[in-house]
Amino acid sequence: MATVLIIGAGPGIGLSTARAFQHAGYSVAIASRTRQQKADPSMRHFVFDAAKPDTVKTLFAEVTAAIGPPKVVIYNVAQRFATEPEEPFGLDPDQVQETLAVNALSAYAAAREAVKGFVKTGQGSTFIMTGNMLNTVALPGILCFGMGKSAAAHMIQNASISYKNKGYKFYYADQRQPDGGPTIPVDGEAHAKLYLDLVKDTEQKPWDYTFVDGQGYVSFST
């Protein structure tokens, strides 16, 4: 039985995805700062704070020891501090550091540990990050959120190229409206279905996976 590790198990995307993979026959590990009351007791919960990138290695070691190396890793954590639109540099350095730790550094550490396990789980192993449009669009008031997402998106793009010959897949998933605008709030069930479909597909699809619910992948060039 393959293992999926879902980092960030909130009541929306996280738990919807956990249920979808459990129904598909996966052993499910969920990682979050607090245990989600709505989670199925059969899912293994691991305490984890994405603001501390140095603890990612321990998380993967615990999951691997308990239920095996993850064949699928879903990074579904985000941190956002907002400023006034006309004050993009309004955050204190410690807030910037926390934002980048959650949105980029821990994502990097998770991808690094995931690949170590992919050596054992083989072709088809998949890393998915829940993204948004901030890797392509600048929105006043959330500069540092966009900085983190942009860095993570570049990481995903690079990895999708570097590991293609080994059969490891990497995705930055971005739900959109039909007109290309952001979906607010995001749809947990739509993400769960997409993530399961991406994992089942044996080939690497576009790394920047912009999708519309009910339509699947849609390319938004601008």
Results as ranks from 00 to 15, higher is better:
N76W: 09
A66Q: 13
T202Q: 13
L59A: 01
M43H: 04
H23A: 14
A138W: 12
A2E: 05
P11T: 04
S162R: 09
P178V: 11
S160G: 04
V63Q: 01
P140G: 07
V63Y: 03
V102P: 11
V218R: 07
G14H: 01
I30F: 10
K166I: 06
L100Q: 08
V212R: 01
Q36W: 01
A173K: 00
A151L: 09
K166L: 09
E62P: 00
K52L: 15
F46S: 02
V72L: 08
V119E: 13
S219D: 14
I6M: 03
E87V: 11
K120W: 02
G188F: 03
L91P: 00
N135P: 13
M129R: 10
T222H: 09
V212F: 05
G14A: 05
G216S: 03
G12D: 04
K38I: 06
A153M: 14
G122A: 02
K57M: 09
A138I: 13
N158Y: 07
H23P: 05
Q37L: 10
T202G: 15
M129Y: 06
F118A: 07
S162P: 03
N135D: 11
K120L: 07
V47P: 04
D54W: 09
F127L: 06
R176W: 01
A151P: 07
A173P: 08
I161S: 08
R35L: 14
A82D: 10
T136G: 12
P11L: 00
K71R: 08
G12F: 01
K200M: 11
T136M: 13
G141F: 14
A61N: 03
D92R: 02
R112Y: 05
A110S: 10
A18F: 12
F145Y: 15
F220D: 06
V186P: 07
V186Y: 00
Q177D: 07
Y217K: 00
H191G: 11
V212A: 00
T17G: 10
V119N: 04
V47D: 01
R33G: 06
P88G: 08
P185V: 01
V115G: 07
R176N: 11
V63A: 06
R176I: 02
D49W: 09
E62G: 01
F89W: 10
Y195W: 13
Y108T: 04
I184K: 10
A66W: 08
T130R: 02
Y171S: 05
Q177G: 11
I67Q: 06
S27Y: 01
S150I: 06
V72Y: 09
Y217N: 10
M147R: 08
K71S: 05
K38T: 15
Y171A: 01
K116C: 05
E203N: 06
G8Y: 15
